[in-house]
Simulated assay, not measured.
Amino acid sequence: MINRRHIRVKVMQSVYAMLQSHNDDIIKEEKFVKHSVLKMFDLYVLNIQLLVAVQKLAAKKMALSKNKILATASDLNPNIKFINNKVIRTISESISLEGYVELNKLHNWEENDEYVKIIFEELLQSSLYEKYLADEEHSFKRDKNFVVDFFKEIIAPNEKLAEYYEDNMISWVDDIPFVNTWVVKTLSKQKAAGLFVLGSLYKDKDDEDFVSQLFRKTVLKQAEYELAIAEKTPNWESDRIAEIDMILIKMAITEFLNFPSIPTKVTINEYIEISKDYSTSKSSFFINGVLDKISKEFIANKKIVKIGRGLI
């Protein structure tokens, strides 16, 4: 499921895009950020589907080899461990997965079998596959460990597959690492006796609401927040402050004032970490200094009200 940090990144990107386009249609842009988050689930499902598509391709090639005129002994008596992998079989029978694909009209990997073939060929050439087939252990645990390693070592780092995803949805560029981790966690939790059920996009309704509220309140209060930032940066002209830094500080102020359950220190640390990935090398120090000053003033003026002990 999506975590709060990735939600913050999504909101940051949408606020930035809105400012760059000089678009003031908040309702439209709010729908865009929510759509961007929802599309992450498509990427999650596509990655899981890919495992099934590779297994189907392996079964198809095995059947063709058996029907060759000059079939060899290995063609006639192939190692069927992979096509019988219990975890992938469980995924292929998932009503949860099938229902999501049909409801959202997600594309079928058979229509993009070029990438299925790329992944399958890389799997065939790997020592991971060779060791798996040679291993005499036939258990759900062994099958699961193989599938997790297959995804981590072959699917997740494949550059051609990443390029394909990026071409389909530009926002997936930043989502791929997060979604890959999500897929691994889902696979690792699968139980031998259980059905395969897709994970949830949001942990709860609060996280879902957090997307809209953080975006909307940041955009609507921008001018007011800029004044607060200017007071704490007297030696800086606003145009000298990196645009991403300004957006992150505004989002942090939004959290200070509007989300009583989020500790102030957590907010500051989250935006410092995001700045390390998305802004300049000095941004984390700048953002930390500005937010520290603003938070102390807001606490003194009782503008920041947090619920629960230790939340300030």
Rank of each mutant, 00 (worst) to 15 (best):
L220R: 06
L220S: 11
L220Q: 11
K221L: 08
K221N: 15
K221H: 13
K221S: 14
Q222Y: 13
Q222R: 14
Q222L: 13
Q222C: 12
A223K: 07
A223W: 01
A223C: 02
A223S: 09
A223R: 07
E224Y: 07
E224G: 04
Y225W: 03
Y225V: 02
Y225K: 02
E226N: 15
E226P: 01
E226R: 11
E226Q: 15
L227E: 14
L227D: 13
L227A: 08
L227S: 11
L227H: 11
A228Q: 13
A228S: 13
A228N: 12
A228D: 15
A228I: 12
I229D: 03
A230K: 04
A230V: 03
A230P: 12
A230I: 00
A230G: 07
A230H: 05
A230F: 01
A230Y: 05
A230T: 12
E231T: 09
E231M: 10
E231W: 10
E231I: 04
E231C: 12
E231P: 10
K232S: 13
K232M: 14
K232H: 14
K232Q: 15
K232C: 05
K232I: 03
T233G: 09
T233Y: 06
T233V: 02
T233W: 01
T233E: 01
P234I: 10
P234L: 12
P234A: 13
N235E: 07
N235M: 03
N235C: 01
N235R: 06
N235V: 03
N235I: 04
N235W: 08
N235Y: 15
W236F: 10
W236T: 05
W236Q: 05
E237S: 13
E237I: 01
E237W: 05
E237H: 14
S238D: 08
S238W: 01
D239W: 12
D239G: 02
D239I: 04
D239Y: 13
D239Q: 07
R240D: 09
R240V: 00
R240L: 04
I241K: 00
I241S: 00
I241A: 00
A242N: 09
A242C: 03
A242D: 03
E243H: 06
E243Y: 09
E243S: 06
I244K: 04
I244T: 12
I244P: 01
I244R: 03
I244V: 10
I244L: 05
D245M: 00
D245F: 00
D245S: 13
M246Y: 02
M246H: 06
M246C: 01
M246S: 09
M246L: 10
M246G: 00
I247K: 08
I247Q: 03
I247G: 08
I247L: 10
I247E: 03
I247D: 04
L248H: 04
L248R: 05
L248F: 01
L248T: 05
L248W: 02
L248Y: 02
I249L: 07
I249A: 08
I249F: 11
I249W: 05
K250I: 02
K250M: 05
K250E: 04
K250L: 00
M251D: 01
A252S: 15
A252G: 11
A252D: 06
A252M: 12
A252H: 07
I253A: 10
I253H: 12
I253Y: 06
I253N: 11
I253G: 10
T254A: 09
T254K: 13
T254Q: 10
T254F: 14
E255K: 14
E255L: 09
F256P: 15
F256H: 15
F256T: 12
F256E: 08
F256Y: 15
